[in-house]
Amino acid sequence: MTLRDRSCDTSLVGASGTGHVPALRTPTGRRSRNRWGGRRAWAELLRLPALFSVPGDALAGTAAAGARPGARTLLAIGSSLCLYEAGMALNDWADRDIDAVERPHRPLPSGRIRPSAALTAACAFTAAGLALAARAGRPALTVAVPLAATVWAYDLGLKHTPAGPVAMGAARGLDLLLGAAATTGRTGPALPSAALLGTHTVAVTTVSRHEAQGGAPLAPLAALATTALLTRLVTHRSAGPVTGRPPATAHGRTGLRPVRDHAGRPSPATLLTTACAAAYAATTARPYVHAALNPSPPLTQRAVGAGIRATIPLQAALTARAQGTAGALLIAALAPLGAKFARKVSVT
């Protein structure tokens, strides 16, 4: 899956400004530089820092289904990572002619990676993702197949149509359902969380459609409003009786999160949900406002990058509100790692 339409690369370049690492002053300097340049090119093509936004999908889906992560959850995460990278490679392969004009420094138009290699990688990642889903069980494969189909349909045509953002949102939602299906065999309880995550993705993808040309202040404004609405929906719960015990699910987890404890204080899950939701809103607020006030390509690209990074605290909030406290903390820990590596390789 990819959250970009025709996005620009804002990754760091070398001291010479060409994006290549200077050759080492050794007899094998050219060979060392070529090896590093190849790794750098693939890191750019696959947007490796964006991978930190993927595991939270399966973990949020598992928590929403009322279960604890297990071996099949790990298989779902592996499947999600593979399908995500398939979308990244296929995206650049499909846009190679456009990138040759608008972004000649990208790995394919610059000649650092051959188009055939990118297409082969997309096929290999797709096959690996489906194989891992099959290992997780038939319910997981039932979700992974339409997920893979959505990824390919988006990259090969839907991205340039009004249906593009919706398709991308559907892919994120399906990825969350993949975690629920793999762990519990059921997707129904996770549908509300999938809808919230998918809505966020629709908003970010809509902004990304203008990041190469800019000039669309309504898109970041709409994304800002969407963020505010999602923050409210994620944190809002009907308190109900303080002393009442919610009904248990088939997996022993409670179906509703208790908002307050017996002393009337907010529960740890409630506090964590609020903190993660606040982090989600804070990550996107300023970049969206800046892009709305000055919808230039650089500021629009920053808004898109912020929207992608904000996926992680949103996943953590969704997990925490389903009482997946440990999972939410694990997801939240991925945010600083993703931000650190995004300084070296762009996530868009």
Score class of each variant (00 low, 15 high):
61 G>S: 05
61 G>V: 11
62 T>V: 13
63 A>I: 03
63 A>L: 05
64 A>D: 12
64 A>E: 14
65 A>M: 04
65 A>D: 10
65 A>K: 06
66 G>Y: 08
66 G>L: 09
66 G>V: 08
68 R>Q: 15
69 P>A: 02
69 P>L: 02
70 G>W: 02
72 R>I: 01
73 T>V: 08
73 T>Y: 04
74 L>S: 12
74 L>M: 13
74 L>Y: 04
75 L>M: 14
76 A>W: 10
76 A>N: 14
77 I>F: 12
80 S>I: 07
80 S>C: 14
82 C>D: 13
82 C>H: 02
83 L>S: 04
83 L>C: 06
85 E>D: 13
88 M>Y: 02
88 M>S: 08
88 M>D: 03
91 N>A: 11
91 N>H: 02
92 D>F: 03
92 D>P: 05
95 D>F: 01
95 D>K: 14
96 R>F: 04
96 R>V: 02
97 D>K: 10
98 I>G: 00
99 D>G: 06
101 V>H: 04
102 E>L: 06
103 R>A: 10
103 R>Q: 10
103 R>F: 06
104 P>T: 02
104 P>S: 15
105 H>Y: 06
105 H>S: 12
105 H>P: 01
105 H>A: 15
106 R>A: 06
106 R>F: 05
106 R>Q: 08
107 P>Q: 11
108 L>W: 10
109 P>V: 02
110 S>V: 04
110 S>T: 06
113 I>W: 01
113 I>L: 11
114 R>C: 01
115 P>N: 06
115 P>C: 14
116 S>F: 11
116 S>G: 08
117 A>D: 12
117 A>Q: 11
118 A>C: 07
118 A>Y: 05
121 A>R: 10
122 A>Q: 05
123 C>V: 14
126 T>I: 05
127 A>C: 04
127 A>E: 03
129 G>C: 09
129 G>D: 00
130 L>T: 11
130 L>H: 09
130 L>N: 04
131 A>C: 05
131 A>W: 10
134 A>N: 02
134 A>M: 01
137 G>S: 07
138 R>N: 03
139 P>I: 07
139 P>F: 01
139 P>S: 11
140 A>W: 05
140 A>M: 12
141 L>N: 07
142 T>D: 13
142 T>M: 07
144 A>D: 05
144 A>Y: 10
144 A>I: 13
145 V>Q: 03
145 V>W: 02
145 V>D: 00
146 P>R: 03
146 P>C: 10
148 A>R: 00
149 A>I: 13
150 T>G: 11
151 V>Y: 01
152 W>Q: 03
153 A>I: 01
154 Y>R: 01
155 D>K: 04
156 L>M: 10
159 K>H: 14
159 K>T: 05
160 H>Q: 15
160 H>P: 00
161 T>M: 08
162 P>V: 12
164 G>Q: 08
165 P>H: 03
166 V>A: 15
166 V>P: 02
169 G>L: 04
169 G>M: 15
169 G>A: 07
169 G>P: 07
170 A>F: 00
171 A>V: 14
171 A>F: 09
172 R>W: 06
172 R>Y: 14
173 G>D: 09
173 G>L: 13
175 D>A: 11
175 D>W: 09
177 L>V: 14
179 G>C: 14
179 G>T: 14
180 A>H: 06
180 A>R: 06
180 A>M: 12
181 A>K: 13
181 A>S: 14
183 T>G: 00
183 T>E: 15
184 T>V: 11
185 G>K: 04
187 T>L: 13
187 T>S: 12
188 G>N: 13
189 P>I: 08
189 P>M: 08
